[in-house]
């Protein structure tokens, strides 16, 4: 047993730093980055957009109630009925962003009173592997980014 341990330590010491870096890169490459998706929509359409976002593997959504600041004249011009808004904060995997925003953009144009805006904010770090699994809808990721 000790000889095996010594062999392993010797292997690690003799390994080139570039090789170690490459190995770490391989491990982390399994982890797909997350982003914060913020969707601002009319309050009456909150449920509709929540359901829509859920179909893109978004497991966690938070809804904040707010109101828009556009003047009544501007609202009439844009055809927005009320000033009450919902801000949906959700976490989305990077590879799903393009597809989601395309569908959202389509719905913003076509759904009656469904006008809104959506944007993503990059996310640097997160605590807990379980939380990452939940937010990314990927249960295969283990600690250290291994599958």
């Amino acid at each position: 047993m000790p000889s095996r341990l010594i062999k392993k330590v010797a292997e690690t010491i003799t390994k080139k730093p570039s090789a170690i870096k490459e190995e770490n890169k391989k491990e982390v490459s399994n982890v797909r980055k997350l982003k914060i998706l913020i969707t601002v929509v009319d309050r009456s359409k909150t449920m509709f957009y929540e359901d829509l976002l859920e179909s893109f593997e978004i497991n966690v959504q938070m809804v904040l109630y707010g109101h828009g600041t556009a003047s009544s004249q501007m609202r009439a011009l844009l055809g927005v009925a009320e000033g009450d808004k919902s801000v949906i904060i959700s976490f989305i995997r990077e590879d799903k962003v393009k597809e989601t925003l395309e569908v959202l953009s389509e719905k913003f144009k076509k759904v009656r009173n469904g006008k809104g805006i959506a944007y993503t904010i990059p996310l640097d770090s997160i605590i807990g592997v379980a939380m990452y699994q939940l937010l990314s809808n990927d249960r295969t990721i283990k600690e250290g980014g291994k599958k």
């Binding site: 925003l101 953009s105 006008k115 959506a118 993503t120």
Partner: peptide, 13 residues
Amino acid sequence: LPVDEVCGLEEKI
């Protein structure tokens, strides 16, 4: 905050 992608903005459309 930095913003990566945007959709639904009138000026962008």
